[in-house]
Write a protein that binds this DNA or RNA. Structure first.
Lengths: 181, 181
DNA sequence: CATGCCATGTAAGGCGTTACATGATTTC
DNA sequence: GAAATCATGTAACGCCTTACATGGCATG
């Protein structure tokens, strides 16, 4: 039982879904984007079925492929709740290949460094725009209570703020660089 | 040729090192921590040797295992420089398992959510302290010019600021939660 | 006397990505 | 007529982690 399993249980605790639906939600989500591939989802679903944490119902469709609609069971709900409450929160991990790239540019001409930073800034701005758009669309936005709405609002903000902080860093970096020597 | 290769070339362009040294530097570094394992490093070094981007010299030691000290070649330096200047900067990736955890807690009691956030805040504070300590120690801090020193200063700050932004998010989250209903 | 450091490597396995297969339906 | 969507799955591969093997020396 790893994160993907609980991600699935969480989604199913929100509403019944097919594997395809979950893949969609995970891939569109800035939070659970990793693990959002067929390979892991369909494998995990088989396991969760075995453990009795989910059930599925085959739905025949004429104008589309048949689908298996999954639902969470009581024991699945219990496992999810236990995981949420008892798992020690992990500190976030940042993977920034750009920092490696720029770290070895320190001896190059100042303008080259600035150009690199400018290109990075561009990328980060794009990310911010995308995250804001995602939040605005509210495509996946559980809203079963005022409190839940607030929580999801904060989650969408989190990513925006992370990229915003990154943007501020690049701006300050470039200003300081210009002032050098 | 992927990131690990250029990470190695970058380190060797700073100073000659053994595989063991590089593993150390990568694992201690908040920037290149991923890939900091024997498996990838020793494999990559063999490849880089084949391609003529690095050379090594065997040093016999009596009171310790023999070691291979690697140095970068001119063609290695050229490849590194080309990579730095021509690679399109990647936007940073954030992997925050905690967001998944909290996202499905929206229907739980307010106190439980606050406790989760409090534990997360604790984790983030620890990270900030560690990053600041790393920066203070200046163990790995290329400093061949004022400009390079400035660049590395900014790099160490980057991680601190990312965690700082995360901390601010948790604080605001908790305040807003308290004010709810 | 056990643990940890130095130093090079190998092995096993999980996580995650990309691509492929199928096949009807809708959209451009 | 080509491409995308729905829907379930499989296959191949690379990245990354963890652990193991060796063996002398230093530290507690």
């Amino acid at each position: 039982m790893v994160t993907i399993d609980f991600t699935i249980l969480g989604m199913l605790n929100w509403k019944p879904m097919t594997g395809y639906d979950m893949k969609r939600m995970m891939q569109d989500s800035p939070v659970m984007y990793w693990s959002g591939n067929n390979n892991q989802i369909y494998k995990a679903l088989v396991q969760l079925l075995d453990m009795g944490y989910v059930t599925n119902e085959l739905q025949y469709q004429e104008s589309a492929p048949n689908k298996k609609v999954y639902s969470i069971t009581d024991s699945g709900r219990a496992a999810l709740e236990a995981w949420i409450l008892e798992t020690e929160p992990e500190s976030p991990e940042f993977k920034k290949a750009f920092l490696i790239q720029i770290s070895w540019a320190g001896l190059m001409e100042k303008e080259k460094i600035d150009q690199l930073l400018a290109r990075y800034e561009e990328q980060v701005r794009e990310q911010i725009a995308m995250r804001q758009e995602e939040k605005r669309r509210q495509k996946y936005f559980p809203n079963r209570s005022e409190q839940e709405h607030y929580v999801w609002d904060q989650i969408y903000d989190n990513l925006c703020q992370s990229y915003e902080a990154e943007l501020q860093w690049t701006v300050r970096f470039r200003e300081g660089l210009k002032a050098l020597k």
